[in-house]
Design a protein around this nucleic acid. Structure first.
Lengths: 196, 196, 196, 196
DNA sequence: ACTCTCGGGACTTCCCGTTCAT
DNA sequence: ATGAACGGGAAGTCCCGAGAGT
């Protein structure tokens, strides 16, 4: 019985490795842009073992996305923790709309990396992903100023907007217009909240 | 030299048909989500004749996108023309962030339909697409209020933001949260410009 | 049931299915008259999986032909088995030159269905096909009367002749002249062997 | 050089040239094995002018076949003319089943070159071709011995048989078995008529 | 009579997701 | 956990028949 699975912990570690690789790869190349083979190879395994860990590619995507929101992209949320009290949101905005985030979509916000892909997916995937969007919001929600009722309404729009800006800035790349877009947007969103 | 175009009309008509079908299909299923075969079949042709009209799939995408910006999505820009003077931008915003636009990505804004796909594409495709983004901006640019220098800086951010909101609203679908996102965003952006 | 080797059996079954469909299709429409696509579709598969089973179309033709000679066209050779002793050859002749064989080239003798196609093919294909012709001869050889040395010489000529008659009778179709050709030929060949 | 005089004779000559090339090419490569382009190029013309002379490829095939029977393959029928009286049929048989005929299907009997191709064609083509078979028979008919009623019945079978033998001998090529087939068949058919 | 246009269709290569036997 | 098996499907190249314009 226990011969077959000598170390459940090891399996868990392997699983986690796959998840991390997948989260990165999906963001970098899109859901259909990576194959199970690539992900497994990058995880130091071969494709045959994949189905031992996950039911299918869709399940991997769901888990990897969940994982990326829960424990990944820490650098992004660290900007909140290391911010001076009262300026958490501004710091988050600055981090979100930073050139670093633009240039590293593979470790960044899922919305800005996979938004349109998910948008045209079937309902099941969209519903899964919706939960993640909510989870992301929960992380920044406490810092949105103003009455709670207002905050709740606005926070979603801000995140979506910033995801859009980031997405476009990636299209434009590190050009004059791309840089301008980013800096202007930083000011725009910061001001929006200063007023509120 | 005089150009010999024996059948300009027929070829052009066929080409246009393919282009229209492609623009729709790309937005609906993503660039890698449609095959040349499907597009041709929907155009009433077979895949064999494709390479007579376009060098390859990439060329088709480039042209179809160009075409979609230049002459497609008219319903979106009509919102500007039919708006009362001085309220063009508000009307555009309302149209852009309408449930109709959310539900019909196949005839809507390219940015909101293919943004993240293009964002991770190679530089060539991104540069092509950048030009289109600029072209889209040119269409709404005249209506952004405030000093020209400001307008120029802001218009890009607004469009990108709205694309992000629309993208997310498509993920959320026609749910309570999805609808709220859209209505809140409409107010948010309208107010932004009223103030300016 | 092949419980022991479920997997190899599956491949073999698929392969056999393709082979059967191909043998039929090649005879019916000619080697260049059928596409890999059609054959696969008729086999309940798609064209993509073809190259897993066969190197290319030429290989399929070679195998399908071999298969058709070895195990196909049983109805033709059954005429020998069910014949009264001593009259095997006559029965075979009657079956070969029957209206049924004329009307069903897709399950009949390869020589009469693809002879001229192969005749103008490159040497490789002709040599392959020659072996099949020899295999066909081996099946009727024991029943050709007279001294062995004579039999060996004649059997080939008879088969070739009958293939020619059948081929022409297919051109003529079920017309008066076509029917006469067949009946006359039956008598002609039967008598030839009665004398010998 | 000839001025652009619409000389009907020239057109006729061109037409004849195409016809001859086509008859050769069809026999050599099969009906679907040659393209209009090849035929025209070999005729010293380009593909565009083809439809000035013939309605379509099918019409060309019909005419070229007709032409080949009427005026082509003269070397075959010359064997009759140059034969000693009373031995016309034997000489024809020897010519028909000669290695030369085996090696030059492009100028030989249509039946032996295109038989199976036509056999699977649609009824229209088969009916056209049937007339040609009759025309061929008319050329050797006078020399078939015995009462007319018998002759009429037998001549068709002999020609068809010989076509089959020749076809198979082309598959076998210039090998031992191929040569034997031919010589044996020559004797077989000669004897058949000696008896009659 | 020629060149070019136009669309059809075949073959092959490549890659993907999944399953199976070991 | 591996690696092969298996089938699906896309992209692209090549060639064909037919027709239009000059």
């Amino acid at each position: 019985m226990s011969r077959k699975t000598p170390h459940p912990a090891k399996r868990e570690r392997t699983r986690q490795r796959i998840l991390d690789v997948a989260a990165t790869a999906f963001r970098k190349h899109g859901i259909d842009g990576v194959g199970v083979r690539d992900i497994m190879k990058q995880s130091g395994l071969t494709q045959g073992g994949f189905y031992f860990h996950f039911r299918d590619k869709e399940a991997l995507f769901a888990e990897a996305s969940r994982n990326a929101v829960a424990s990944g992209s820490e650098w992004l949320y660290d900007s909140i923790k290391s911010a001076p009290p009262g300026r958490e949101l501004q710091c988050f905005i600055d981090a979100y709309l930073s050139p670093a985030h633009r240039d590293h979509l593979e470790s960044g916000c899922l919305l800005s990396a996979l938004g349109t892909d998910v948008a045209r997916s079937d309902e099941a995937r969209r519903r899964e992903f919706s939960k993640l969007a909510a989870a992301i919001l929960d992380r920044i929600s406490p810092y949105v100023p103003g009455p709670d009722s207002d905050a709740r309404r606005r926070r979603a729009g801000v995140l979506a907007s910033m995801a859009g800006v980031l997405m476009v800035s990636r299209v434009l790349g590190d050009t004059e217009r791309g840089r301008t877009l980013l800096t202007e947007a930083r000011h725009f969103f910061s001001e929006s909240f200063q007023n509120a």
